[in-house]
Structure formats: structure tokens, C-alpha cells
Design a binder for these strands. Structure first.
Lengths: 357, 357
DNA sequence: ACGGCAATAGTCAGCGCTGTCAAGACAGCG
DNA sequence: CGCTGTCTTGACAGCGCTGACTATTGCCGT
């Protein structure tokens, strides 16, 4: 492998060194069928000797593929976006693809959004696009992509199933497990901090929780407060739920940020977590371990979702097998914010340093 | 502007419609000199009519430029990385450039790192690279980039000044302002939570703080504890600092995560912020408003740093004027975690809901 | 032994643009 | 009026690769 310097080797250099045609090199590089082992060996040796790497620009100009997939995100969801990027990046890197991230951030009307996307597609060659919340359910975006014949994969969609390959987790089932956890620990007076009803995940989590509770503990009393997934709103929701005479013994905040808000509300009201109030979040993001005690929450496999979505797009070309939806497993991460009412003990491992404060 | 469909227009289409040569279109598109106004008008009209957008792949194949800049980050610093991305992305978008983000994440030895970078450079055409902490001070990385003749800009370097254009803020001066704030509010028993001494910013903040204190309040008593910039370490450092008889009245944690940790330590020890202990962070990241009371901290203009760095790289081609280092302003954001010892009041706006708990 | 067919290898045009070179237009000057 | 120098425009090759096509080989059955 030559160490940079001079000029980078081209396919022609490899072909000459191996004593074959350029096209044969191309075939080996692209793993096309109908290539003899002997020729493949010769070419691969030459490639190794020259340290040859195909030029992406030439590849995308001459061919149909661009070896680039787009990732369309809203960077306002900091942790979420970063995890998506990590996952998509990893899948691309492993397959020699490039990732082109576009921040669709600001909420503008659909027409403007589509004009923006049109511009993105015009200025870049993409093999596919990973569409993430809250665009996963935006039919203007999907219509546009389809009108352009651009392959795309959806991360965590909640509507229009089957419209394009999707990768998701089962929010409702996960929320159901939280219900199980609460009931198992003897909680019957329960608070629920919801997200915006326009947010698919928020709705699924609420519904999944409520339905499960209705089955396993029909006698449970549930009070709801809207939290819109923000820390500050979580504080308000927490106070609303807790600053009453018959306050709940456990609160399910449907994302970690609002759960942290609820914990802050507890602190403000002089309530101890989990002794006075048990709390469960959802997402397992940075916040979950930036509060004390550490938050019991549902781990959402965000990076894996994006990774699978990228793979869906990459595989379209690699082997044209029909790609189906992918359901990824979640995991209830029991940390230190749930108390077992029946034994009067906290559940799971002891909270860090909770016995010497 | 034609609405997609059909084939995307090429430079030849524009040339024919305008009745000029392809090269003339190229000249107009690239704002080359020696083009008559008349010709320019004709071409621009044709471009608008066809909705022509140059093909980036063809452009980089035929020419020297790729209209792509790389951003090398370590995504473990979630908030920081995302802000860098936002800034770099914005600068690129505004100038018709693309951003190619590479996650250099895991800490491996320099040789392996360079091999990795070599691979990145081989597989992508880049006009320049934005190098960010902790790579900004890595001379193996700089040596490599220089050996490849790849232009690069450094974000927040702390050593090797002048080696390549740099964009940074004055960490030491900002830390000095925190010292001013503490002293102005009557604090003389002060705790300092440092970061790793291998982290340039950590060192600059510590030094800047200490030097300023020495000038304005030589009688002040300062206790230090290492916090390595993590929440958990902040808790430990906080306890170490506060769980003593003569505890400090104010603590400067040199980043927000460790400041949040210190706040948690206060809660664990039954101390109230800011009544018992005043706290100041550094960064103004997500944590600063995910704790209660909201954290007084120094706002670091991360997105702007990356934006300027991108601009440095882009301008190199636009107009070849010599590019110099850029110093961006910081801002002390006074929120609710500092108490004024002289008047026995908290400084700044009242903490949210602090009078009805 | 021969046609037929798959597997294998090569030829060549051209993707859409830019760099180089050269030609034409035009002004200034002796 | 011819000559030089500058501005403006165009012709053309080719960046590095792939897609479509053609040529060659080896193997089969009959």
C-alpha cells in the first residue's frame, strides 16, 4: 500500500498493473458476478499494491449510484439527532457510503419545506434518504420523494404504514411494560405526563400505557397532565400532578426530559424520589443519567434505528431482495426512581450514595 | 423555474438556450472575471428558466474544487458536536457547499487515527477540513493534513497557534469574568471544579479564573477538585468540596455537566442552591436549563465557531485574501444560581417558582 | 464433430463539467 | 494606418469511472 504522496492511483493504473482491462477492475471493485477467481486475485493484488480507492465523484458521474445517502433530521432534538447520526454514519462507513446530513430544523409550511427538499435533491446526488421524526409522518415529504422516484426509509413512523420501508420500535408495548412495572410494584394512584397529541410517539406511549393499565389494574386511578416533552413543561406537569391532596405514588413521564422536570417539581415540593414518588421516563437519553437518582426509563435504540434505515437503503442496491419493515427491540432500564410499595423498598440496585447523605 | 420532472437540465441545455458556449455558462456560474454584462444576463435568464443547478459530481471530477468541506468531530460530546454541526452546516448551505461529517469518536493511538484519516481523505474529495476539539491540538493530525496539502481550520485550539487558521473564544477571560462575578457578590471561600489537565479548555478556564482571583481578591481561599467534565464526576467533586466544615460559599464548575453534578451533590447534602451555595458553570449547554434553579454560566458560541471555521475554508477559494484567526465573543449568562452575599439576595432575576414551594 | 449457450473478458462512448489554448474584438498609440 | 495589449468568447480534451455492447472461451448434448 503506497503511502499517499505522488498522484492517487486510478482504475487505469490498476488495470495496467494487473494486465487486464479497466472494466474488469470495475467488475472486481463492484463485486459484479461472472468474474473468474484468477482475474479477481490479480486485480485485488494490484489494488492493494497501489492503494487504489475509487473516486466517488467519477463513480457517481458515470454510474447511477452516488454512494451517498441523505439523513434528514431536525437538530432541535439534540440527543436524538446525534444518535441517529451515529447510527446512520456507522452503517454508511461500514459499506463505503457517505452520509449527507441535512438539518430541516425550523418548522415552516409544507410547501416551503418541499421547495427546500427540492433544492437539496437538485444539488446532491443521493441514493436514498432516511426520513426521521417528525418528518416520518409528513405526507407532503413522502409525496415529494415518491414523485422524484427517490428511495427512502422512514424512522419511527406512526401513520401511513407500508408506504415505504420503515424502522421502528414498539412504543406502545414499551409503555405497557412501564404499566406492568408500576402495577407490579403496587402502584395504583398513577400520574401520566403526556406529550403533544400531534407527536406520534407521544400518542403511542400514552395509549399503550393506558390500555395495559386497563387490563392489569382496572381499579387504578390515573391522572394526566400534558408535558410536551420539554423539561420546563415537565416541571409544570409535575406540580400540577403532585401539588394536590391525593397525589399519585408513581408518575410515568413519556420522555426523559419531562421526567427530569417532574423530578425537579418533586424537589420544589419537598418530595423525595423514589420514597415519596416513583418516576419512570422514556428514551434513555442523556438526561436519564444527568439527574439523581438515576432515572428508570425505557431505552429506545435510536442509533440502531438509523443504522437499519441506512442499511435498507444501501441493500437496495447490494442485493435487490425485497426490503421489509424492521422492528427493533426496546429495553426497560430499571435504575433508581421506582419504589416497591409492597415491600417499602426501592426496586433494583440501590441509588448511588443514598445511604451516606 | 421548471418543476422537476423530466431530466435535470445540464450546462449544455443552458448554453443552447442562451445561445452561448458551455464555457461561458461555466464562467457565469463560477463568477469568473472577464464576462460581459450582456452575456451574463442572457445566461442567468436561461439558468432561471431551466432551473439549472450544476452537478456537484461533474464539477469535482472536472475541476479542482469539490464544494465539500469535512467536519471532524467526536460525537461523544453530544451537545457540543451538534452545535458544531449546525454552525458548519449553515455556513456551507449558504455558500452552496456540502458538509461531510466524520465521527472520529473512539480514542485510538495516533498512528491508527492517521490511518483512519488517510482513508477518509482517499475516499472523499474535500476542499478543506474543520478540525475540532480534542483533535484541534493533535499534532499528528495536523502533520498529516499538512503532508496531504489539505487546507484545514482549527476550532478552539490551545496550542500550536498560527499553525493553521483558528477560530476560538477566550476561555481564560471568560473564566476571569466568573471570578469577577463571585467577588462582586462577596464570595471569598471558593470551590473550583476543574476538568482534565489534558483538556486545553479546562486548563485555560482554571488558569484564567485563578489569575483573576489573585488580582481582585488575593485574600480569597480556593479549594480545587477534579471533575473531568462529567456529571458523575461533578457529584463527587461537589461532595468533596462541600462535605466539610468550612465549605465554600461559591463553586465554579468549569463546565455545565459538572456544575449540574455539583448541584446534585448539594441536594444530596441537603444544601440549597443558591441560598447555601452559589454555582457557576461554563458552556451554556442543554444542562444549564435542565436543572433547577437554572444555571448561571458562560455562553460559548459553539455554532458560530464552526460557522466561521467553515467560512475560512470556503473563502480560501472565493477570494484568496489571507485568512487570519478569528476570536469570537462569549457572554456570561446570569441565571439563578448565584447569591449576593452582601445583600443576602440572589442576583439577577428570581428563580422560577421559588416562592411558592 | 458441431451448434448452442452460458460464463468471462474487453471495447468504447460519454456522464457534466472545467482547464487550457486560441481566436476574435476592440482600444490606445506612434 | 498598422501594431500591440487587453478583454471577451469559444473549441476541445479529458477528469475517472460505468453501462451497453461485442468478442472470446469453454462446455454441453446429440
Amino acid at each position: 500500500m503506497n503511502v499517499s504522496g505522488s498522484q492517487r492511483a486510478t482504475m487505469l493504473d490498476v488495470a495496467r498493473l494487473a494486465g487486464v482491462s479497466e472494466k474488469s477492475v470495475s467488475r472486481v471493485v463492484n463485486r459484479e458476478p461472472h468474474v473468474s477467481q484468477k482475474l479477481r486475485d490479480k486485480v485485488e493484488a494490484a489494488i492493494a499494491e497501489l492503494g487504489y480507492v475509487p473516486d466517488p465523484a467519477a463513480r457517481s458521474l458515470a454510474g447511477v449510484r452516488s454512494f451517498t445517502v441523505g439523513l434528514w433530521i431536525d437538530t432541535r432534538g439534540l440527543h436524538y439527532s446525534m444518535k441517529l447520526m451515529e447510527g446512520a454514519y456507522e452503517a454508511c462507513r461500514a459499506h463505503g457510503y457517505h452520509l449527507q446530513v441535512e438539518n430541516l430544523g425550523s418548522k415552516i409550511d409544507d410547501a416551503a419545506q418541499v421547495a427546500r427538499l427540492d433544492n437539496i435533491l437538485r444539488t446532491s446526488r443521493l441514493d436514498g434518504v432516511i426520513v426521521t421524526p417528525l418528518f416520518s409522518d409528513n405526507s407532503a415529504v413522502m409525496d415529494f420523494l415518491e414523485s422524484q422516484g427517490m428511495p427512502y426509509a422512514r424512522v419511527s413512523p406512526f401513520t401511513h404504514y407500508g408506504r415505504a420501508p420503515a424502522v421502528f420500535m414498539d412504543d406502545a408495548a414499551a409503555a405497557g411494560e412501564v404499566a406492568d412495572l408500576f402495577v407490579r410494584n403496587g402502584h395504583r394512584f398513577i400520574g401520566l405526563v403526556t406529550g403533544s397529541p400531534r407527536h406520534g410517539a407521544a400518542v403511542a406511549r400514552r395509549t399503550g400505557f393506558l390500555e395495559r393499565i386497563a387490563i392489569i389494574a382496572p381499579d387504578a386511578v390515573i391522572t394526566e397532565a400534558e408535558g410536551n416533552f420539554a423539561f420546563e413543561a415537565g416541571i409544570a406537569a409535575g406540580r400540577q400532578l403532585l401539588d394536590v391532596a391525593d397525589r399519585p405514588t408513581a408518575i410515568f413521564a413519556t420522555n426523559d426530559d419531562s421526567a427530569a422536570g417532574v423530578m425537579t417539581a418533586c424537589a420544589q415540593l419537598g418530595l423525595t424520589v423514589p420514597d415519596d414518588v416513583s418516576i419512570c421516563g422514556f428514551d434513555d437519553n442523556l438526561m436519564a443519567k444527568s439527574v439523581w437518582p438515576y432515572l428508570t426509563t425505557v431505552h429506545q435504540p435510536i442509533a440502531e434505528l438509523a443504522q437499519q434505515a441506512a442499511l435498507l437503503l444501501i441493500d437496495r442496491h447490494a442485493d435487490k431482495r425485497q426490503t421489509a419493515d424492521v422492528l427493533l427491540p426496546h429495553r426497560l432500564v430499571e435504575r433508581d426512581t421506582i419504589r416497591d410499595l409492597r415491600t417499602s423498598e426501592k426496586v433494583c440496585r440501590p441509588a448511588m450514595g443514598d445511604d451516606d447523605a
